[in-house]
Write a protein that binds this DNA or RNA. Structure first.
Lengths: 340, 340
DNA sequence: CTGAAAGCGCTAACAG
DNA sequence: CTGTTAGCGCTTTCAG
């Protein structure tokens, strides 16, 4: 186990550095010798030691990715994309789940720093994420995705959260819904906050008042969303539509809708941010705000590699568009009948 | 950027190795000196270099995880679990998507070897995975999960695929379904193969013949599953129930069912391996074979750490149970009416 | 209790 | 074209 450069050199009857040259593809080596070296390496099952190399060269072939939770449907395609472009460049990715916990986030940043990653993409918990700051201070290129960070001005790849949410809620309002409930995630996250803003903007624009009693924030799990939705639905003045700021909350809310006996589309309008496959499988397919998830990951990773490759230009902030997928859950509301 | 041990030593007015001792928590250092060192380290924003440490100690704090695809719903909770237990032990995880491609799998194994990971959990593509073998040969502890590997006898954590599938199909048969279609994934994967075996076992046990025309294998994507299902459903002798070997295929098949106009539960029985949240949200909730996904990840990671900690006992193979979640999609079939 | 010194495996000048 | 040499940042004997 573990042949080293020296072993290979001995076996091939050349020096230490010749082997290094051959194996790192440098020119100026007689083909004949090169062949002998390669043979020796193969024979010994030689595997270069990335740590030693990286220690010497100050270059790493690992990047870090700090995300909120791999289990979230929105996140997986972006992780996948990051991994794809990294792997295409011969890099591996160190994955970190921060769970929207700033403490975890920081300790992961520290860990990435220790591991000497070449760069990191991070979906920060809050806007003032110290993690991104810490990494940047440590000289590690950082690009933010999903959420921007304020603490330090780094590249970012996000979507137009306000616009997406506003379009969704405007669509609901235009379809005749008047009492739209808002089920939102943690306000520490810029995404949730901006989606709430979009919700407000849509109301403002159309002059329809927001029913504060129908706004529930700081929802973390789908169970919490289910409970909140149930309470609203059973309340004295229930909503006639629901907007959720992410798919996880949507799943919870839908469970509550199901047990309320209300029928989506006819009795209750529904739109959610995020567009997982299953929204199309429901009896009443869901209208959604789709994000270009895979593309977000690609662009974030590409931006990172641009920095790793030495680009020192001013930070660039890419804002991608969402697209409203209109489906049956927001069919135009029949006007309230005048007479029974 | 990048204060080193030497810098800290200078700053604190002590020697090189004293700093090392303090920072790695060794005893035999005067508290007073230790405090001064710690101060200096903090002041300089010192971050230990994991690579250098690992190079010297031959111990790493990174483990690798080779999976098929993070986007698969089954996989995310297990990745999450692996990450959770690793992080609890101060380890990070290097994630690799092999996509059921043996080439990719091997090159990732090589990469993990180069990075000097302390160990790796791998969901191998085929039974004869050279990746696991390569890692094991390189002296890296390996534990297989989801699928066992034959090429080398390492610990494994899997579920009873044959039993789970057999239970599901037996349930279908007992409920009166007689023409059960089988939509299966890649036969190179032991999981798919064993689930097919379960399908056969259930038929064998009940004496009901398998309709070979209703068996479709080597399905990769949900679109392929949709196409296969559509073809079956529109054929001359359509199935009266469908069993899919994973959630991805189920989603595709369901799309086909939806456009066929057939009603789940009443017109067509349906069971799938895997139990994502959304199966409960459908108009007709799905009967499923649930795997203890998070638990699989935990046990795999724990087994790995046992090896990393030096356990040299014989390989242990944990086989976890699946559980059949009976829901509306398999309601007992009404006997065919004798007269109209 | 603390310092000096020898490498871990590798690369990158610098000589030959 | 090839060999020698000096470290990268750290841990770890071995002396004091």
């Amino acid at each position: 186990m573990g042949a080293t450069l020296k072993d290979v050199a001995q076996h091939a009857g050349v020096s230490y550095s010749t082997v290094s040259r051959v194996l790192s593809g440098q020119p100026h080596v007689r083909p004949e010798v090169a062949a002998r070296v390669r043979e020796a390496a193969a024979a010994l099952g030689y595997v270069p030691d990335g740590r030693a190399r990286s220690l010497k060269t100050r270059r790493a072939t690992v990047i870090g990715a700090i995300v909120t939770d791999v289990c979230q449907e929105f996140i997986t395609p972006v992780v996948r994309a990051i991994e794809d472009v990294a792997s295409r460049r011969g890099f591996a990715v160190l994955l970190a789940n921060a769970d929207d916990d700033e403490g975890k986030e920081e300790s992961y940043a520290e860990l990435l720093l220790q591991e000497g990653v070449a760069g990191a993409v991070v979906a920060a918990t809050g806007d003032r994420s110290r993690a991104a700051l810490r990494l940047a201070q440590g000289g590690v290129p950082v690009v933010a995705f999903d959420r921007r960070v304020d603490a330090v001005d780094v590249d970012s790849v996000t979507v137009d959260n306000v616009g997406g949410a506003c379009a969704a809620v405007s669509h609901l309002l235009a379809a005749g819904y008047r009492r739209v409930a808002l089920l939102a995630g943690l306000m520490i996250a810029g995404t949730a906050r901006m989606r709430c803003e979009g919700f407000e903007a849509a109301h403002r624009r159309t002059g329809i008042p927001i029913n504060r009693g129908l706004v529930v924030q700081e929802l973390r799990t789908s169970d919490e969303a289910a409970a909140a939705a149930a309470q609203l639905l059973e309340g004295p003045r229930p909503p006639d539509a629901v907007f959720t700021t992410n798919a996880r909350l949507a799943a919870g809310a839908l469970a509550a809708v199901r047990s309320s006996g209300l029928r989506l589309g006819s009795d209750l309008g529904f739109v959610t941010f995020d567009d997982p496959l299953w929204t199309r499988l429901l009896e009443c397919p869901l209208t959604t705000v789709a994000q270009p998830t895979y593309d977000i990951g690609c662009r974030a990773a590409e931006a990172l590699f641009r920095r790793i490759d030495g680009d020192a230009g001013p930070p660039v902030h890419e804002v991608l568009e969402t697209s409203l997928q209109v489906r049956a859950s927001t069919m135009p509301r029949a006007p309230v009948p005048v007479s029974q």
